[in-house]
Nucleic acid binder design. Structure first.
Lengths: 124, 124
DNA sequence: GCTTGACCTGGAGTGCACTCCAGGTGCCAC
DNA sequence: GTGGCACCTGGAGTGCACTCCAGGTCAAGC
């Protein structure tokens, strides 16, 4: 069982040190251990959870939703089903996002063809 | 050749009336016609361009980049090649976005399995 | 001619997610 | 034991993309 300094965690997760502090402040991270001197000491579990947060952020989950998820984590076994539901619902949103992007990409490529034409027509 | 009121354009493009005014103010839209009384009167060409903007926004192009694109439109035929390049570069970013989403979705689904397990392990 | 509702302007305010700052502390190396 | 760097805190500031507001104007219907 090893521990990591804020700088190491920033390196490993891609969150800035300020963001890590911010997440703790707003309650996204609430059990970060401290050294006797008061410095943060992140565990492997913290790291794993931060990687989940990273994934959720990168797929555009709002912080408010991540907070609700953290609440469910506090609920322990009783909330397991709900936690899984939250993630599954998010997974569906990601699927939807991808579909939307594909659709917009199709449109974009059409525009590229239009704009490639010698006379820049206002059409379509 | 028909014209559209701000409300109609909002309806057709999904941009709010305030956003349409904002886009004009910052120079994204610069040739919107007016009635003798001073009301905006959007043309079919405006509508087509707004649909392109919609597509670019929905694929996360920053407004600053859209402004650069509009500059290139002003450049006329001389800038056609550059315009197309901007769109193509954006198309590649969209491709990249989709790939990232897929990767994150893969991870998310893995987490869903982990969190589905009866004992909420801190692992992975 | 008056009401009403959509529209106009410039400018201020909002929400989100950080990011930065000042002033101070812990700790390792020399 | 002291220099220096990573770290601490609370709170202020930032950037983006809108969104809202007050106070006024246009125009269609009665």
């Amino acid at each position: 069982m090893s521990f990591y300094s804020p700088a190491q965690v920033a390196e490993k997760t891609g969150f800035s040190i300020d963001t890590l502090r911010y997440y703790e402040k707003i309650g996204l991270l609430h059990t970060v251990d401290r050294t006797p001197g008061g410095r943060r000491r992140f565990s492997d579990a913290d790291l794993g959870f931060l990687r989940l947060l990273r994934c959720l952020r990168d797929t555009d989950m709002p912080i408010a939703d991540m907070l609700r998820f953290v609440e469910l984590l506090r609920g322990g076994e009783a909330c397991r089903q709900q936690r899984v539901e939250v993630l599954k619902a998010h997974d569906r949103r990601v699927e939807e996002q991808i579909a939307q992007l594909r659709e917009n990409q199709r449109l974009l490529r059409h525009k590229i063809e239009v704009y490639s034409a010698p006379q820049p027509a206002a059409a379509s």
